[in-house]
Each structure stands twice: as C-alpha cells, then as structure tokens.
Design a binder for these strands. Structure first.
Length: 848
RNA sequence: GCCGAAGUGGCGGAAUUGGCAGACGCGCACGACUCAAAAUCGUGUACCUUUGGGUGUGUGGGUUCGACUCCCACCUUCGGCACCA
C-alpha cells in the first residue's frame, strides 16, 4: 500500500488527511484531542454508527446507566464515570458480536424545574427541555455511543401518558389506594415524601427536617410484594452484597407471633406482635402506641384522661427525629384498664408509651421486663413487676439488675416449664393458635409507597372525584391527562390547584359536570421505575411497550449506577417489574441481572457539589485533557466500585501522557502502514516474545472487561504491551510488530474511542474501528518453550532455573538440587522433602 | 446492638485456583537531550541491613512444605438498619 492508496481510504471518510514524517525530519502531527474528538463525534453521529437493532442471529446485550436529571448545572465527572463504564461495556460487547442495546434518556420531572419557575418565572418545560439538550451535548462530548433514536424524556406527554396507564393498571389490580394517614411532610419542598425519601429524619433532596401531617394520599401496595422482593434478592448473584443487604434491611422481615389480649370491660381486644412468644408467661404489662385507635376509648372517663390526651397530641406533632432519637427517654402513662393474659388469665395493666410505634407491627407490645432491655428500663422507671420465665445459667441473687436475653429452659410457664426457650417460641405460638389467641406471623418494616406529591412538575394522577360516583379512574382511552399551562407559580400552593380548566371536569361515569380532578402529581420515582422498558419501544402510542420486544431484550445485562439508589430506585423498579410480571406484560421478575454500583468521583476528598464549589464539569475536563484522557483516568485509577479522587492534575495527566505515547509509537512505525514489504522469515526469540505478550494481553483484557468489569487491570495490561512494543528492536521481525500495533489500537478502542479511531484511520483502515471484531488470542502463542521456575528452601526464594516446559518432575527436582547456590545452602542439612509444583516452583524442605 | 464492605509502599492500586507480595500508574531522586526550561527518553524507588541476609499485606493465634488468599478470635474505617417489640 502506498501513500496515495492510504489517502483513498481517508477520502472514504470524506476527510483530507496528510501524513507528516517524523523520522524524515519534519514535525510529527501532534496528538490534539480538541481537534480529533469533535471531528469523530460528528462523523459517528452522521453515520449513525451506534444505532441498535435486534438481530436474531446475534445474542443480545442490554447495557444501561441510570439516566440523569437534567438540572441547570450540567454534568460533572461523577456522571461521566458512570457513562464511561457503560460505554466501555457496550463497545466491548458490540465488538464481540453482540446485538447491543445502549440507550439514554432524561429523568426530566422534578422539583428544580418548578423552583426555577417560581424564582425566575421561566416555564418549567422550556427550562427542562433546554437542559436536556445541553446534557445530551455533554454526553456526546465524552464520546458515548448511545443510540439516540431511543431517547426518552419522562416529562413529555408521550412518556407520562404511560405512567398514568401503569398507575391505572395498579389501581385495577388493587395495588393503588387512597388513605388518610400521618405522612412525612417536607416544609421546604412543600410536599409529602415516601419513607424511602426520608434519610435520618431529613428530606432526601434538601436536608430539611421532615414533619408529620395528617393527609389523604395515594399509596402503592409495595408491602404486598415484601416477601417476593426479599426472596428475589437470592436470585441476583451479580448484585453487590452491600446493595442486597441494604434492601434486606429496608424490607426488615421478622418472624414471631401475634398474641391477643381480651379487654372484657369494654368488650375489645388488643393484639400485640412479638418475636419472643417464649416469654409470654413473663408479660407484666402491655403498652400501646399513642396513636393506637383504642387509646381514646380506653382512657374515657379515667383519671388520667386529659394528661394522656395531651401526651398523644404531643407525640403526633413530634418529628421523626424527636420521636426516635437514641437518647429520648421512655415515657408512659397507665390507662387504668387491664387486659386478660390469654394463657394465665391474669390481669395485665395497659399503658400508653412513646416508645411504641403505630406503624410497625400492631402498634401494641407486650412488656416482658425480665427478658427485654427496653421493657426492663420501662418497668424499672415505673415500678412495674418483673417476672422471670427463662432460667439463667447462674441465677442472680435478689433483684435483677438487667434483662436476661440469653437462652435457657422455661420456668414459671405452666405446661411449658423445662423446655428450651428456642423450642418454646414455636410451641407457644402453636398453642396460641389452638386456643384462638393468635399464632405465628411475620412482620415487615417496609411500608406502602406514598406517591402523591403536591407539586406541578410531575405526572398528574389520572383520578377524578365525583360527588355521585366517588373516586373514578380516568378511562385509559382518555389518557394522557395533560399538565395544564394556565397555572400560578407562587411557591405557596400546588400550582395545579390554580388551573380551573384542569381541576374542573366531567365525571366519566355519570357525566356530572362538577367533578374535580386529583391535583397531586406522582412521585418522580414512578418515572424511573419502568423507563428501561420504554427504551425498547420508545415511540409506541398505544401502550407502554410491546411485550414481545421487551421480553427479547430484557432483563438488563449490566446496569450501572450509584449506590444512592440502593434502596429507592432499585427497590421500586423491582416492585414494578413484579407487578408487570403478574399482569402478564413481561416474562421476567427481576429487571437487572447484573448491577455495577460505581464509586464517586471526589474532588479534595469530597463528593462534587455546587455548594462545596468543587465541581469538575465534563466540559472543563474534556477541554483541559480531552475526553479520552479523562475516560482513561477514571477507568484506570481504581476498580469501578471504589471512589476515585480527581485530585491534582498529575493523575489525569498520566493518562494523557500514555495516550501521547501510543500516538507517537504508531507514528514512529508509520512505514509499516505505508506499504512496507514485510519479511516472512521465521520468528526469532524477540519476535516470539512480543507475539506471546500480545496474545497474553488479548486474553487478559478480554477477561477483565468481559468477565470481571476490572477495567483498571485491563488498562494496565495494555500499558505493559505498549512498554514491550516500545522496547522491541527496530531490526527485529516487522510483521509481528505490525500485528501488535494494530491489535493494540483495537484493544484500546472501547476505552478511548476517539484517538483509536484517528489512529485506525491513519494506519490505513477505511472502516471505523468501532465496527472491528474483537481480536482472538491463540492458545498456542501463549506458551513458551521454556519456563522459569523458582527454587525455594523452606519456603524462601533462593534461586531460579529455566527449564523446558515439558520437563518431568523428577528432572526438575534433580536440576533444582544441582543448582549451585542451592547446593551451598543445603549441604549440611537433611532434606525432608521436595515439593515440585509444575510451572510454578520447587520447594526444598530441610532440617538443620 | 444487628447486617454488609474494606484494611497491602509516600499515593491510586495489582496479585483470577493457596505457590516469586507490591504488576501498572502517580509522585520522588538521579542521569541523557537542551544555552535553559518544558516535553521526551533512561535508571532507581517497601522497610531494615554488618550486603550474608532479615522483616513485611490491620492485630493475635491456627492449618499448610508454602497464607494478602483458608480457619478462629479481635481491632479500625466506611455504609445500611435500629426504642422495629
């Protein structure tokens, strides 16, 4: 191939390229990322290089990153890291012959747009759409290979139409319901929050302390799926253990028993939940949560009525923090009434106490001070009786000083005396069931998902209230319920309530013209609970997606995202998928087969944030170092799940330096790609070594990306190859060198797509490198004729020998023993034994 | 308290099955090139040392010919849950 034919190749790309010969004395064309990166980005876009289509002849691979919220601030390197990881994976599998789906979108509903409307009078839609465009540009700047034809924005009616559709599906299936409840209220965001969105008593978005409010709200019955959400985790071996642990904690399963105590005086019953039915005979009192519905009835006409009512009111107003902080004292009041113990028929006093929570279990607990720390404290404080029912190994003299929570045989427990408390847990629960006073049961910490939000920029809940018909769902054919434009943003009220044209409507059931629309919108986590399904069929106007298509592509093979969604988004998505499965719309129960939870990109040891002023934007990084160097740095510096420190510039410069080195290496050998006549002589030892290194590198890089997601070690293997090529003597076999250089460029392509595309073109290849098949290694070239073995004496390395690869154990042993230095070391000693590990080492065990 | 993850040079990290600890990179030092600097290239870089060697992967034990890797106990850091009955 001569220079003009090379240029022909370049002309296919529609670009004029010239070659400058460094060795010839003129200046080598410098590696300038700001030059080549935008060029290739626009060529890739024009050629639609990354358009995906399902090809029945190829196995599919669906790789996805959590889509961004299009804020006004644009994207920083934390975002870039997520996308880079996904991009490497998608490019790798594309080159490995998979039909890859790699889409992107925007999680476009949310409060900041609305706050911008309130503060600056902008239209939330225009503001959001503008940001979406900007973020797409920034993602393209990093060289991401998304299939933009599948782009979705959740704030568009084409999308939120199907949020409403799915909401109605939940409603039909009895999984969406309205109830009046004490809910979490963020006074800063002016809206309610789901339990998952309250972090340590603070709003997940703005860190404002969350208060309680009594409101009628919409919930999704995620608790119906608690057990399946828990069990499903066991089917996810490719999820990080910590994410699964977090979900397990959140679901919070505990097994125990319900116990029913009768209240003959007022003809009622109190049911308590306990994990320790074995201590039932040690109950000396009951405690109700202040919010327990029976409290009012119990205290009616009692001495303490007013005191307790005041206490209950105070508790209802308290924030989560005030109520549950660790140093909060236990406070209780006796109601004056007694319940009947279901087995002993003894009278047990009923108290109301701050430490009992209404929304866990039954809102009532039994007090067993002898065997429970909290009950012990409470009983001591209020001088309640303490009754031991489990025998301690060494009984304490006189009064107990602490609860005994260990194991032991039961005492003072009637027929159950003498049996171990472990066995008694089940025995007593079973007995309760027989006598109709309770029985084994399971409780979950998980609570139903509150999805109503008193905000504008979200999906309207498709419900109409009619004075005649009550709650009426909007018929599916009337969807979407559009967000109205004639609203007032004053920050004081839900803007939707200010749109008369929206609120005032006709009842679809009876035609009543005085019906009202629901003015709350949906939690934006609804949007992200199924968006990964919409990418499959993004332009479907009839339904959310075509089930056959979705079943072809899903589940997602690799899902990349931050740990901050370990519970929220990932739990909700799993819930949605299970509901859609039950509805027969998808044929899988878990949407994400493999989860890659990447670490943060830190700057000065802290997460990048606007308030800390330590944000490194994508634009800044790509201008300063180039997207390729920035990508390479983040991939190389640590495995993906760890945090990386963007730090001082030297780290990123190291990556840029490596790219320059590769650039020069290729240019130094440009003759190879300009029609140099290659010799066909047999390979000498140096050439064989390079070939071996090359094939080792292919093997290593393939496994590190394809099997382990260890991009850092993949990059370091490529660096080693570069070092070896750089040391390869100019006079040695040229064909091997050419092969090594070309393969090097291909191996680097998923990591640094721009520079490799440029170099691929410069080395005379007319078609994009990103359409190249991934190189295969040859097992035969991995091996050497000889191998170096380590000789140890008593486990310490004392020498080395090089032997033919197929030398027998016996011969290896005799050669090792014959080794000069080894002889010296073992000459006065008795050889106890000699261990020969083929292809590794010889260990000679000696005694002095 | 319960659950989970992690502890390796000055730094980021590597060691995939129990087999040469510290690959690769950053930083640093010295050298080459240069009037000089940058860039680049080369050499060195765990610690101690009497230059024979000794020590070393959070700590203490154990298994093994051999342990960063397996077992037991513990310490520290980070994360989740937590008056959850």
């Amino acid at each position: 191939m001569n220079l003009s034919s090379l240029c022909n190749g370049f002309l296919l790309w529609g670009r004029e390229v010239y070659w400058i010969n460094r060795n010839g004395g003129s200046i080598m064309k410098e590696y300038n990322p700001n030059d080549i990166e935008p060029k290739w980005q626009s060529i890739w876009a024009d050629k639609q290089l990354y358009k995906s289509s399902s090809n029945p002849n190829k196995p599919k691979y669906y790789v996805l990153e959590q889509f961004p919220y299009p804020s006004g601030e644009g994207l920083h390197m934390g975002h870039a890291r997520v996308y880079t990881i996904g991009d490497v994976v998608s490019r790798f599998w594309r080159m490995n012959g998979r039909s890859v789906l790699y889409p992107m979108g925007a999680d476009a509903f949310g409060l900041p747009a609305e706050n911008a409307a309130i503060q600056r009078g902008v239209n939330p839609r225009d503001w959001t759409l503008k940001n979406m465009e900007r973020i797409k540009e920034e993602q393209s700047l990093m060289g991401m290979s998304y299939d933009w034809d599948r782009y979705i924005g959740t704030c568009l009616p084409e999308y939120y139409h199907f949020n409403q559709w799915i909401f109605l599906l939940f409603y039909e299936r009895g999984l969406a319901y309205r109830k009046k409840a004490s809910v979490n209220w963020c006074p800063n965001c002016n809206t309610v929050l789901a339990n998952e969105q309250v972090i340590d008593g603070l709003c997940w978005r703005c860190d404002t302390e969350v208060t309680k409010k009594e409101l009628e709200q919409w919930f999704l019955r995620i608790t119906d799926y608690a057990e399946r959400l828990l069990e499903g985790l066991d089917q996810l071996p490719k999820w990080p253990e910590r994410v699964k642990a977090m979900q397990r904690n959140w679901i919070g399963k505990s097994t125990g028993a319900d116990v029913t105590f009768a209240l003959p005086e007022i003809n009622e019953e109190i049911t308590v939940f306990t994990t320790r039915p074995d201590t039932l005979y040690g109950v000396t009192y009951l405690v109700l949560a202040p919010e327990h519905p029976l409290v009012i009835k119990l205290i009616k006409g009692q001495k303490q009525e007013q005191t307790i009512l005041d206490f209950v009111e105070q508790m209802k107003k308290a924030t989560e923090v005030e109520r549950t902080a660790e140093n909060v004292d236990k406070i209780g009041y006796p109601t004056g009434l007694y319940a009947i113990h279901p087995l002993t028929k003894e009278k047990v006093p009923i108290w109301v106490g701050n430490y009992v929570l209404m929304d866990y279990g039954t809102g009532a607990v039994m007090g067993v001070p002898a065997h429970d720390e909290r009950d012990f404290q409470f009983a001591k404080k209020y001088q309640l009786p303490i009754k031991q029912v489990i025998q301690q190994p060494e009984p304490t003299e006189g009064q107990l000083t602490a609860a005994y929570t260990g194991e032991g045989p039961l005492i003072h427990s009637a027929a159950f005396d003498g049996i171990s408390n472990r066995k008694a847990i089940q025995a007593i629960a079973k007995h309760l069931e027989e006598v109709g006073k309770g029985g084994e049961t399971t409780q979950y910490r998980l609570r139903d998902w509150l999805i109503s939000r008193q905000r504008y920029w979200g999906t309207p809940i498709p419900i109409i209230y009619c004075d005649h018909c009550g709650v009426v769902p909007v018929p599916k054919e009337d969807l979407p319920v559009y967000l109205p434009e004639d609203v007032v943003f004053d920050g004081k009220q839900n803007p939707l309530t200010t749109s008369e044209s929206f609120v005032h409507t006709t009842c679809p059931q009876c035609g009543n013209q005085d019906a009202r629309r629901e003015t709350d919108t949906m939690d934006t986590f609804i949007d992200s609970s199924w968006y990964y399904l919409r990418y499959i069929d993004p332009h479907n106007h009839e339904k959310p997606f075509d089930s056959d298509l979705v079943n072809q592509w899903l589940p997602i093979d690799e899902y990349v995202g931050g740990i901050e969604h370990a519970i929220l988004h990932l739990l909700y998505s799993r819930f949605f998928t299970k509901v859609l499965y039950d509805a027969g719309l998808v044929n899988f129960e878990e949407p994400f087969t493999s989860l890659l939870s990447q670490g943060m990109v830190l700057k000065n040891g802290a997460k990048m944030s606007k308030s800390k002023g330590n944000v490194v934007s994508i634009i800044e990084a790509s201008n300063t170092y180039g997207a390729d160097a920035a990508r390479l740095f983040m991939l190389f510096t640590a495995p993906p799940e760890r945090d990386v420190e963007w730090g001082d510039s030297s780290n990123v410069e190291g990556s840029a330096r490596f790219l320059k080195r590769v650039w020069r290496l290729i240019h130094d050998h440009h003759g190879l790609f300009e029609g140099e006549e290659l010799d066909h002589a047999p390979l000498d030892d140096v050439a064989k070594e390079l070939r071996q290194r090359l094939h080792q590198t292919i093997k290593k890089v393939t496994a590190e990306i394809g099997e382990r997601n260890h991009f850092n070690t993949a990059v370091s293997a490529i660096m080693e190859l570069v070092n070896e090529i750089a040391n390869y003597p100019a006079e040695s076999h040229r064909g091997v060198l050419k092969d090594a250089l070309e393969t090097l460029i291909i191996l680097l392509a998923p990591f640094v797509p721009h520079i490799t595309e440029e170099l691929w073109q410069l080395t005379g290849h007319p078609k994009s490198i990103h359409l190249q098949p991934w190189p295969a290694y040859n097992e035969q070239f991995l091996k050497n004729d000889t191998i170096e073995l380590v000789i140890q004496v008593n486990g310490k390395v004392r020498g080395k020998i090089t032997v033919p690869i197929d030398l027998s154990k016996e011969e290896i042993e005799s050669q090792a023993l014959a080794h000069e230095r080894i002889q010296e070391l073992i000459k006065d000693k008795e050889i106890v034994k000699v261990i020969v590990v083929p292809a590794r080492l010889i260990n000679i065990v000696v005694k002095a």
